[in-house]
Simulated scan of single mutants.
Amino acid sequence: MSVARPLELELALPVDPPAEDRRLFYDFSGRVVTEVLRDALPQVISVDLASSDRRVSVALDGPHGPYALSFERRRVSASNPHQLLVLMVFTSVLMTGIAMIFLRNQLRPIRRLAYAAEEYGKGGSCLSPVRCGRAAQRGHRVPGHAQPAGAPERPAQADDVWNQPRPAHAADADEARAVDDRARHAA
C-alpha cells in the first residue's frame, strides 16, 4: 500500500476479477495495451479498459488471492491519437502545395521550349511568346509572325529581318499549311 500511493496506483484487495479482458470496440490502442500488459506481467488475469475511459484496471493473481491494480490511462497510451492523423493530413497538404509550386516552375521553361520549337518549325525566329506577343501589341513586326491588322509600315532597313528572303523550308511549310487548311474547310 505504501508503494502504490507515490506511484499513483490504486490497489484493491480482495477482488472478484472479470473472466475476460474488456475494451470498447473502437479502442484500437487498448488492444496493444492489453497485449503489452499480458506479455510483461504473467500474473494478469484480466484487463478492464471499458468501465472507465480514463482508468485502466488490471486484475492480478497474487500470493494472497486476486487483487486489482488501477491507474490512469494516460500512463499507458496516448490521450489524443487523432493528432497524428491531423498532423499527417496537414503535412501532406503542405508538401502537395510545395510540389505544385516546383512543378509549375519546371513547366514554364518546358512550355517556352515547346513554343520556340513550334515557331522554329514554322520558319519563325521568335523564341519567346511573351516577347513576340508584346511586340505585336505595340505594332512592331515580329519575325515569323503575320503583321497585326492596322499596324503602321516601317521603313525598310539594311539589316531588317524582313528584307532577307525566307528559307525555302519555311515557304514550303506555309504552303503545306494552307493546303491543309483548305482541305479542312472543304470537308
Rank of each mutant, 00 (worst) to 15 (best):
L7P: 01
L9I: 14
L11I: 01
A12K: 15
L13D: 15
P14K: 06
V15P: 01
E20S: 14
E20M: 09
R23K: 09
Y26Q: 11
D27M: 05
S29N: 10
G30V: 00
V32I: 11
V33W: 01
T34P: 03
R38E: 04
Q43N: 10
V44D: 02
I45N: 04
S46A: 14
S46Y: 03
V47H: 01
V47R: 00
V47W: 00
D48Q: 03
S51C: 05
D53E: 13
D53S: 10
R54Y: 12
V56G: 01
V56K: 00
S57I: 02
L60K: 01
D61M: 09
P63C: 11
E72R: 10
R74P: 02
R75W: 05
V76H: 01
V76F: 00
N80T: 02
L85W: 08
M88S: 15
M88C: 14
L94T: 01
M95R: 06
T96Q: 05
G97R: 04
I98V: 08
A99S: 04
A99Y: 01
R104P: 13
N105P: 05
N105H: 11
Q106G: 15
Q106K: 14
R108S: 15
R108A: 15
R108H: 12
R111V: 06
R112E: 15
A116P: 04
A117G: 14
A117T: 12
E118S: 15
E119N: 14
Y120G: 08
K122C: 11
G123E: 08
S125P: 05
S125N: 12
S125I: 10
V130A: 14
R131P: 06
R131C: 13
C132Q: 03
A135T: 07
A135R: 09
A136R: 15
G139D: 02
H140F: 14
R141T: 11
V142R: 03
P143F: 07
P143M: 07
G144Y: 05
G144Q: 08
G144P: 05
A146N: 12
Q147T: 13
A149M: 11
A149C: 09
A149L: 15
